[in-house]
Design a protein around this nucleic acid. Structure first.
Length: 166
DNA sequence: ATAAAGGCCACCC
DNA sequence: GGGTGGCCTTTAT
């Protein structure tokens, strides 16, 4: 994992979303992480990802940002930190419009590594900005739902809200 | 350096 | 439906 471009200090906090409690990490103008779990869990899962970075918890600001994202649908800039391969995959995810789906295989083809389907699965799973980088829109080639970092119930709900039938 | 583990896929039965 | 081998990247020994 690459962690060079990270600033020295970021803000973080948890709040309720329509899909359950979630945690954000953000700076003045960018989102670094959006995870569907409470802060304590997040801290453990991402302690490596943010190692050496001071995360200042600010729940009031986090509330506002999470509200903005899910209810006001405000657009935020996103800062994606990862390997080149991962960023390629994540950029592909952002091309999938709401209400549409893709497959792990299709993404592998689009990034010009048609054999790397399994690696794509890993990269999709490592997406640090859930929801805004719509990793939930990726299904298996056979139509099955595949997995979801934060539990299949959340993935199902996200798809359902976008009117995506399985 | 090497091994092991994946949010998979294609193929077989 | 279920099992198996192959593929490629990342992470952990």
């Amino acid at each position: 994992m690459m962690k060079n471009q990270l600033p020295e200090e970021l803000m973080a906090g948890s709040s309720e979303s329509p899909y359950g409690i979630c945690t954000v990490v953000f700076s003045e103008n960018k989102i670094y992480t959006l995870a569907f779990c409470e802060y304590e869990i997040f801290e453990k899962e991402y302690k490596n990802y943010f190692s050496g970075i001071c995360l200042k918890t600010d729940n009031e600001l986090s509330d506002k940002i999470i509200y903005s994202i899910f209810y006001e649908k405000r657009e935020f800039e996103i800062e994606l930190i990862g390997t080149e391969f991962q960023k390629n995959v994540w950029h592909e995810l952002m091309k999938i419009p709401a209400g549409k789906t893709s497959t792990y295989k299709e993404i592998a083809i689009n990034i010009n590594k048609p054999e790397a389907v399994r690696a794509v699965g890993n990269a999709v799973g490592a997406n640090p900005v859930s929801f805004l980088v719509p990793c939930h829109r990726v299904l298996r080639s056979d139509g099955a739902m595949g997995g979801y970092r934060w539990g299949l119930a959340v993935k199902r709900l996200l798809l359902d809200v976008e009117n995506i039938k399985l």
